[in-house]
Amino acid sequence: MENKTPFREGAVNLLKTSGPQSLLSLAREFKVTVEGARFQMLRLEKEGLVTSSKTVTGRGRPQQLWSLTSMGQSRFPDTHAALTVKLMEVMKELLGEGAVSQLITANGEKGTDKYLKELEGVVDLEKRINDFVSIRTKEGYMAQVIKDDEGFIFIENHCPIGAAAHANPAICNAEFKTLQTVIGENIPIKRIEYIVDGGRRCAYRISAVKL
């Protein structure tokens, strides 16, 4: 079915719901030329709503993908964000910081178990990372991976739990622990970009060399 949504509005919505897109994909989706798509995306980039990066998705030349910036993401307010933060504050007041920490830990462990089950039997590191990217993208993280000479850069362009993470950074620590466990305890991983610190995205350097 032809997408009749105006390009600017439609492109932002598509990047939100489907993750990073190439100019060719955008052009096909909205029935415009690639140059027309480039012109519109550069306008959105100038407004601070989108950005582009090059990524390798298999063999061949790196592909330029467009994704939302934090400003672009803010156009989609999370209606549960305020409630989540408020509930955490109330829990802390009534039950103490320890109860909040236990909740975060338990939730992280539950998520980790889910991922490990979904990735069971996937031994190859690159495939494991790519499969995890697919899972996280479906969950709204707009994940992607870039392969280079040092290994991989695992990127999450959006954080659907951003409000809660800003309120309690322990959530980010639990997320990092989950990533480490899922990818492999013997695989060196380092956070190199961090939304909570003002970054546009969260990104992690994953070494191809095991400890």
Results as ranks from 00 to 15, higher is better:
Glu2Asn: 14
Asn3Pro: 10
Lys4Leu: 14
Pro6Tyr: 02
Glu9Ser: 10
Val12His: 04
Asn13Val: 06
Lys16Val: 00
Gly19Tyr: 00
Pro20Cys: 14
Ser22Asn: 05
Leu23Asp: 02
Leu23Pro: 03
Ser25Arg: 08
Val32Glu: 02
Thr33Lys: 09
Arg38Ile: 13
Arg43Gln: 09
Leu44Arg: 03
Glu45Asp: 13
Glu45His: 10
Glu47Met: 15
Thr51Ser: 07
Ser53Tyr: 06
Lys54Gln: 13
Gly60Thr: 09
Arg61Gly: 05
Gln63Pro: 09
Gln63Ser: 14
Leu65Asn: 01
Leu68Pro: 00
Arg75Ile: 10
Arg75Met: 14
Pro77Arg: 06
Pro77Lys: 10
Pro77Thr: 05
His80Phe: 08
Glu89Gly: 04
Lys92Ala: 12
Glu93Ile: 15
Gly96Arg: 05
Glu97Gly: 08
Glu97Trp: 06
Gly98Asn: 07
Ala106Ser: 11
Asn107Pro: 02
Gly108Ala: 10
Gly108Lys: 07
Gly108Arg: 07
Thr112Ser: 09
Leu119Gly: 09
Leu119Glu: 01
Gly121Ser: 10
Lys127Ile: 12
Arg128Gly: 09
Ile129Met: 03
Ile129Phe: 01
Asp131Ala: 12
Asp131Leu: 12
Asp131Gln: 12
Val133Met: 08
Arg136Cys: 11
Lys138Glu: 13
Tyr141Lys: 04
Gln144Thr: 15
Glu150Trp: 04
Gly151Met: 08
Phe152Asn: 05
Gly162Ile: 03
Ala164Lys: 00
Ala174Glu: 10
Ala174Pro: 07
Phe176Gly: 03
Thr178Asn: 08
Thr178Leu: 15
Ile183Glu: 02
Asn186Glu: 14
Asn186Cys: 10
Arg191Asp: 03
Arg191Phe: 02
Arg191Glu: 09
Ile192Ser: 02
Tyr194Asp: 04
Gly199Tyr: 03
Ile206Trp: 00
Ser207Phe: 03
Val209Arg: 14
Leu211Thr: 11
